[in-house]
Amino acid sequence: IGSLMYASIFGNVSAIIQRLYSGTARYHTQMLRVREFIRFHQIPNPLRQRLEEYFQHAWSYTNGIDMNAVLKGFPECLQADICLHLNRSLLQHCKPFRGATKGCLRALAMKFKTTHAPPGDTLVHAGDLLTALYFISRGSIEILRGDVVVAILGKNDIFGEPLNLYARPGKSNGDVRALTYCDLHKIHRDDLLEVLDMYPEFSDHFWSSLEITFNLRDTNMIPGSPGSTELEGGFSRQRKRKLSFRRRTDKDTEQPGEVSALGPGRAGAGPSSRGRPGGPWGESPSSGPSSPESSEDEGPGRSSSPLRLVPFSSPRPPGEPPGGEPLMEDCEKSSDTCNPLSGAFSGVSNIFSFWGDSRGRQYQELPRCPAPTPSLLNIPLSSPGRRPRGDVESRLDALQRQLNRLETRLSADMATVLQLLQRQMTLVPPAYSAVTTPGPGPTSTSPLLPVSPLPTLTLDSLSQVSQFMACEELPPGAPELPQEGPTRRLSLPGQLGALTSQPLHRHGSDPG
C-alpha cells in the first residue's frame, strides 16, 4: 500500500511539474524568437521594450494561443456562430445594431475584428487614413492633437468618421493612444458598406441611429477645401490634362476667341504652333527640309505637354522668318557652300510665315494684346468667377478644330508651292551661260556676264508674291485673308516669265 501511494503521488507530481515546464519551455522559446528578432533588426531601446511588454501581456492574456488560427480551423457556418458569440456584447448593447435580422448580425459579426491594445500603444496616428470604424468594449483611450489631450473615450464609445457622408476615406486629425488595456472591435469601411448593401432595409436605420462619439476626420483635408492638395495627390493619381488660365478682364471677355491653345513656353509662336517648341509643326519652317525628324516628334510632343491658354504674339512682318533660324542665316552668309535649293526654301518659309499670320487673323479676328503681368498667370479653374468647365471645354474643342483646319490648309498650300517650284525647275534647270562666239564683223562684242542661278530668282519672285499679296490685293481696312490656291498659281508664272525669257546656255562643266 505504501509503495502504491508513493507511486501515485510521485507520478502525479511529476506530471504536474512536467506540464509546468512544458508551458515555461514554450514561453521561453517564443521569447527567444522575439529577442532574436530584436537583435537581428537592431531595434532601439524604447521600441524594444514595448515589443517585450506586449509579448508578455499577450502570452498571459491568451496563454500563447493564436485565436485567429484556431477560429480559421472551423467551417464557415461554425465561424459565424463563434463570431456572433464573441461580439454578442457589442451587437446587443450598441444602439445602431438593434433591430437587425439574424442574418445581418451574422454577416456583421464575420466582418468585425477584435484588437487588444496595451497602455501607451498608439492605435491611430495623425494623418493616417481612416479605413475603419472603432467600437470600444473595454478600457479607455485618449485622443491628442500635438501634445494636447482633446478627448478621453471609454466603454461603448465610437470613434472614426461617418462613412455615409464621404465617398473616400479621410485623414485623422489626431493621435489615438490607449490609456489602459483596451479591447476594441473594428470593422473596415469596405466590409461595412458591403453588408449594408446586402441589407438595404437595415442601412437607413443604421446610419440614422449611429452616433460617433469623436469624429477623427480632418475637415481641412476634404477635397475642394484650401488644404486638400495632399489628399488630392493621394487619391487622384490618374489626373486628366491640367489647364491653367490667364485672368480675363471685362474688356477681354467681350471679345470671342481671344486665346489660343499652345504648349508651355510657346507664347511667341504662331497660331498653328503645336507639339515641339520653336515654330509651326514643332520646328522652324525654314529647317523643315533639312530635319525630317521633326514630323516624327510632333505626335509625342503634342500628347505629353499640358495645355496652356495664352494670348497671341505680336504680328510678324511678311518677309521675316518666324524666328530662331540660325540654319538659314548661316546659309545666307556662306552662300557659296550651301545647297542652291536652300534659297528657294527660304522664300517658301517667308510665304508660310505670311500665310500663317494672315490665317491666324482670319480665324481669330481680334487685335493683338500685350501679355498680362506675371502675377495674373496660372489662375486655377476652381477659383470664384471662372467660367463653367463645359464652356471652357467647348472653347478648347473649337480652337482645336480651327487649328486642324489651319494645319490642313497650310499643308495644301505648301504642296502647291512645291509643285510650282518643281515645275519651274523642270522647265528651266539651273545653269550658267557659256561665252558666246564673236560675230564675223570687226565690231565684236565682249563675252556675256554669267546669269544668276535660278534659286536666287525664285527667292526674289516669291518675296514679290508675298509683298504683292500682303499690300496690293487686300483693300484698305479689310481683314488680311489668305489668297486662294488658283490665284497664287496664276501669279507665280507671271512673275517668273520675264526672268526666264532670256536664252540660257548650259555650261560645259555643268553635270545637269
Rank of each mutant, 00 (worst) to 15 (best):
P306D: 15
E254D: 11
G360P: 15
A398S: 08
A431H: 13
L381Y: 06
D336Y: 05
L481P: 09
L410Q: 01
D250P: 13
S140L: 06
P321L: 15
P169C: 10
V150Q: 08
I141Y: 04
S291L: 15
N404H: 12
P289I: 01
G282T: 08
E473K: 05
S244G: 10
I136A: 01
L129F: 09
P476I: 12
G174S: 12
S353A: 08
S444N: 13
E298I: 10
F312H: 04
S260Y: 08
Q464L: 10
N220H: 08
L165R: 14
N378W: 13
R386A: 08
N350V: 02
T456V: 09
P200V: 03
T180Q: 05
D250V: 10
L496Q: 12
A398H: 15
N156Q: 09
G508I: 11
F202V: 06
G441P: 13
S290W: 05
A371C: 10
S313G: 10
F354D: 13
E230T: 06
L210D: 01
R241I: 09
R274N: 14
E325D: 08
D190K: 04
H505L: 11
L231H: 13
A398M: 03
T337G: 10
L309D: 14
R506H: 09
L377H: 12
I158A: 12
L454M: 15
N173W: 11
N164P: 06
L129A: 06
F468E: 08
P430C: 12
V435K: 08
P315A: 10
K186L: 09
W207M: 05
G234Y: 11
P226V: 09
N156V: 03
T373H: 14
L504D: 15
D413C: 01
G497L: 03
L184S: 01
E480W: 08
K240V: 11
E201A: 06
G233N: 07
F206P: 01
P317Q: 09
P438F: 08
R217M: 04
N220M: 09
R241S: 10
G494T: 09
V176Q: 02
D413S: 05
S334A: 10
Y166L: 04
Q238L: 09
L376S: 07
S433C: 14
V195K: 01
G288M: 05
Y166T: 09
D297M: 11
K333F: 11
P322A: 11
V465F: 15
A178T: 12
I158M: 06
A151W: 01
S509L: 08
P292A: 12
P447R: 09
F206G: 03
I212T: 02
L193H: 11
L420Q: 08
L381S: 11
R189T: 07
S304H: 04
P271H: 04
A415G: 06
L216G: 03
D175K: 06
F345L: 09
P318H: 13
A498K: 13
A498N: 09
V150N: 01
L462E: 15
N339I: 12
G146I: 01
T416N: 13
G265L: 13
S313M: 13
M328R: 14
D204F: 07
E296I: 10
A269F: 14
P223T: 10
P493H: 06
P450V: 09
I136L: 06
L481E: 06
S375A: 09
Q464F: 09
S208W: 03
S273M: 10
P475Y: 14
N215I: 05
P475V: 09
G174W: 03
L474F: 13
P318T: 11
R145D: 10
L210I: 12
E365T: 07
S172K: 01
D175G: 03
E472Y: 06
H505N: 12
L457I: 10
A167Q: 08
S303L: 06
D197T: 13
G324K: 09
L193P: 03
L216Q: 01
P300S: 12
L129K: 10
T131V: 09
A151Y: 01
S411E: 08
G439E: 05
S290I: 15
S509Y: 04
P169A: 07
S342K: 07
R361P: 08
P438S: 09
V451K: 01
P511A: 06
K240A: 13
P280T: 05
K186D: 04
D460T: 12
L504W: 13
P486A: 03
L421G: 05
G439H: 12
G170M: 03
S244T: 10
S209C: 09
L406V: 15
R266W: 10
R386D: 13
S303D: 09
R237Q: 10
S203I: 10
S446I: 11
D190G: 07
N156H: 10
S244A: 09
G265C: 07
S383V: 14
F206C: 02
I141F: 01
S335E: 13
Q400D: 13
I143Y: 01
R409P: 02
G139K: 01
F352M: 07
L165Q: 09
N404D: 01
L153R: 01
P511W: 15
H507D: 05
P384I: 15
L196C: 08
P388N: 08
N350Q: 09
E254F: 10
T437K: 13
D128C: 01
L129D: 04
R237A: 11
S303G: 07
R389M: 05
Y363T: 09
V149M: 09
L129M: 10
P372C: 08
S444M: 10
S501K: 08
T131A: 08
T219Y: 12
G347H: 06
S305A: 14
P162E: 07
G299T: 14
P479G: 11
P321V: 11
E365C: 04
N220V: 10
D397G: 08
R241N: 07
T229Q: 08
D147L: 03
T500R: 11
D128R: 03
S358Q: 13
L396K: 04
D413E: 05
S358L: 09
S383Q: 15
C471M: 11
R266C: 12
N378Q: 01
R241T: 11
F214W: 08
F245L: 10
L327P: 04
Q419I: 03
S286P: 14
L231P: 13
F159D: 01
E254P: 09
E194G: 11
G323L: 14
E298H: 04
P429I: 06
S342R: 10
D128N: 03
D197N: 10
P326F: 13
A261N: 11
V259L: 10
E320Y: 12
I212N: 03
G270R: 13
P226N: 06
Q495Y: 09
D336I: 09
F206S: 01
R359P: 09
G512M: 13
S375C: 08
S382L: 08
S461D: 11
T253W: 11
S225R: 09
Y432V: 12
P322M: 15
L130V: 09
K155H: 08
A371Q: 10
W207N: 04
S291V: 11
R274E: 11
N339W: 08
L262R: 09
R506L: 13
L133N: 03
D357Q: 09
S346I: 06
P503Q: 12
I351W: 06
S375P: 08
L377Y: 13
M221W: 04
A478R: 09
T416D: 11
A178V: 08
Q424I: 11
S203F: 05
G174P: 02
